[in-house]
Design a binder for these strands. Structure first.
Lengths: 124, 124
DNA sequence: CTGTATCCAACGGGATACTG
DNA sequence: CAGTATCCCGTTGGATACAG
């Protein structure tokens, strides 16, 4: 059965609702950072070590944006050397289930999609 | 309770799984086009009319990518003037539930996020 | 350890004009 | 009607160097 009557949640307001979230989480690193923080409080260097390929710059930028949007909390401990711990806020945690839904879909369908891609390239 | 034991679906393979889907659906128009096609078979011009702000170029590109990935079917009717109808494939339809999960999250949390943004800007 | 600053290449995407 | 072709600009993000 069609779910058309529900897709207004996506299309609503000329797409402004879905765009609001896309603008925030649809970049190269945000979802990976959020997923990594789901284990609890993690410090900067540990995050960088657990997320292969991310640069200091992009980790900083991603964390700042998440903090600014209230999805991640940042705690500075007055020590030497400095220790900064990042953790998901309740809002941040609430993003995990929909993110998992997406990841589940990807896990299930990406193989078929890749096959379709190759077939498409083959015939032109 | 933490869902950490599940987030491997997001982080798995160094993030390649989640990246695979992000690369395909996280652009300005894809989710809107998919949601619009959930009503059934729609022709090019109708799509453009129902998706405010999309240009011919971007609608074409988005549809081509979706077709190439096997999420959308394209049917050309041999008439004059030409009539082309686009529709979701089963794989395309399967994307609707996770997309709705995301949209639901957005609807629920975006107000709080925007407030957090403004507070962040205010204090610097 | 936890960042900032700068430079730069690649890409997405808008505007516009043209076509079978 | 349903596209294609070109131009062009803003943003994203990588590399690198520097700093508190």
């Amino acid at each position: 059965m069609s779910e058309y009557r529900h897709t207004c949640m996506i299309r609503g307001d000329g797409g402004r609702v879905i765009r609001a979230i896309l603008d925030r989480i649809c970049n190269k690193w945000t979802l990976l950072v959020v997923a990594t923080l789901d284990q609890g409080s993690v410090r900067f260097t540990d995050l960088q070590r657990q997320i292969p390929g991310i640069s200091q710059r992009m980790l900083t930028l991603t964390l700042r944006n998440l903090e600014r949007d209230g999805l991640v909390s940042r705690t500075v401990h007055a020590e030497v050397p400095p220790r900064v711990e990042y953790a998901l806020t309740p809002t941040g945690k609430s993003l995990i289930p929909p993110a998992l839904a997406l990841a589940g879909w990807a896990t299930e369908h990406v193989p078929h999609i890749e096959a379709s891609r190759e077939a498409y390239e083959a015939k032109g």
